[in-house]
Design a protein around this nucleic acid. Structure first.
Length: 440
RNA sequence: CGGAGUGUGGCUCAGCCUGGUAGAGCACCUCGUUCGGGACGAGGGGGUCGCAGGUUCAAAUCCUGCCACUCCGACCA
């Protein structure tokens, strides 16, 4: 992508409403625009990051055996009356009426709808286990949205729903998602810690929140320091192997880890002093097992091996991709801007033409740009008329992991400068070597 | 939902107390000089001061109502 043809509305000054780093940087880097309280438009740069995040989520959901579908944002009140949640959910739910005065709502979650879909088709335990997920916009009418995308009212959510014939099967489904979540966040460069959680209005009795530690996190969390060094399950995990998964989950739940709502001071103080981590964290995922809470009232039943009908055991598993954008920035930034991990970076490489219009720099940049593009590298070529200083500042701000600085000074010696955004490390290389390095 | 604030050009803000022809910096356009860490000079365009009433000869400024947004708290993925 040529910057001269891209849409990247950088802000030099910080909009006053932005209190925390991720909010401030997303506005400054031209990633999003606020359209209302807790409602944001994602601009091209922000969308690129969101798409990368979603791609990783999809890969790991699919790997764990979940199947993607897509449910609507608008639901009927009738469905929610079946589960009893229409009256329970409160003002957080955005209720609307259509032209026929039918009561509708903008979905804050999809348990009812997925249960309705399930019960319409699935009759036999032989069709289980089943885990269906989608990535869809949700709306929760928060009393007080804040922190930009971290706590907006409209937000994207990956929500998966598992169906099993019994509690043991549901536990396996839960473990699949548990391990998938560890992998998902790790691939984005984030260390997530599963913490015992409150189940809230979704209900159930087995639940973990996946927390990323960050100073600006909204929740107070407590955990054993060893979790910071735990090994994340690799690609080779066999998600069909119940014992293997249970072993992994047992390991990852063996030490103390809880959010403030579930905090047990005494247990925590029992840890060795140097193992106690008391910090703030951002909830990036939440998984629940809630048994037959919905399947019973909504009559989602299957015939078991015994020929009798059994309500299915369900769980639901959420990840907030839009919130993850914020969490990632909280985790990876400095005074100059964002430092994207490569897996989620909007572009992998930025080429900075330090003297646009000069024959040699133009030629060197064009050649690099074409070569990188041909190799499938996501490259942003700053071919604008700006001065070098402004280009450095922009590149640092938007946080592209690698910068190739092409200027007359270096080219005089046949070199370009390769800069790593995360560390600031620089190296003088020939264009060919730089290309080789970036496509290795 | 309680409390506290803020709405003036795309952004950051001054002006409001003490009413009298709407300002600055940045951004934008033109020209010139610059060109390896957010350049400089000259010229230029852009705002019915959140909305609606009211007071007044006169309202960005005073009064009333409404709306939007932000922050603290309670709440929450």
């Amino acid at each position: 992508m040529r910057l001269s043809r891209f849409f990247l509305p950088i802000l030099k000054e910080t909009p006053k409403e932005a209190e925390i780093a991720s909010h401030r940087l997303m506005l400054r880097a031209g990633m999003m625009r606020q359209e209302g309280a807790g409602i944001y438009a994602l601009l091209p740069l922000g969308l690129r990051v969101l798409n990368k995040i979603c791609a990783i989520i999809r890969e790991e959901q699919n790997r764990a055996g979940a199947i993607e579908l897509l449910m609507p944002t608008i639901q009927s009140a009738e469905l929610w009356r079946e589960s009893g949640r229409y009256d329970d959910y409160g003002k957080e739910m955005l209720r609307i009426k259509d032209r026929h005065d039918r009561e509708m709502l903008f979905g804050p979650t999809n348990e009812e709808m997925i249960t309705e879909i399930f019960r319409a088709y699935v009759r036999s335990y032989r069709d289980l286990p089943l885990n269906l997920y989608h990535l869809q916009w949700k709306f929760r009418d928060e009393v007080r949205p804040r922190f930009g995308l971290m706590r907006g009212r409209e937000f994207l959510m990956k929500d998966a729903y598992s169906f099993d014939v019994d509690a043991a099967g549901a536990r396996h489904a839960y473990n699949r998602m548990f391990v998938a979540y560890l992998r998902t966040f790790a691939r984005m460069g984030l260390r997530s810690i599963p913490m015992v959680a409150d189940t809230g209005p979704i209900g159930g009795n087995l639940s973990h929140e996946f927390i990323v530690l960050a100073n600006t996190g909204e929740s107070e969390v407590f955990c054993h320091r060893d979790y910071l060094d735990f090994e994340v399950p690799g690609e080779g995990v066999n998600f069909d192997d119940r014992m293997e998964l249970q072993g992994l989950v047992d390991g990852w739940t063996s030490l103390y880890a809880a959010t403030s709502e579930k905090h047990d001071c005494e247990a925590f103080r029992g840890l060795p002093q140097d193992r106690q981590v008391s910090a703030r964290g951002i909830e990036v995922g939440h998984i629940f097992y809630f048994g037959t809470k919905y399947s019973e009232p909504m009559r989602a039943v299957v015939a078991g091996p015994d020929g009798a009908e059994h309500p299915v055991h369900m769980g639901s598993y959420g990840i907030g991709p839009t919130r993850l954008i914020g969490a990632l920035i909280e985790a990876f930034h400095d005074d100059d801007g964002i430092k994207w991990p490569e897996a989620v970076a909007p572009f992998s490489v930025a080429i900075l033409n330090l003297k646009q219009g000069a024959t040699d720099t133009d030629a060197a940049c064009e050649q690099l740009y074409r070569a990188l593009s041909a190799k499938g590298v996501d490259v942003l070529y700053d071919d604008t008329e700006g001065r070098p200083g402004a280009k450095f500042a922009t590149a640092d701000l938007i946080g592209v992991p690698w910068q190739v600085l092409v200027g007359p000074k270096g080219l005089a010696e046949g070199k370009v400068e390769l800069k790593r955004r995360s560390t600031g490390a620089r190296e003088l290389l020939t264009p060919a070597d730089a290309l080789a390095r970036l496509t290795a």
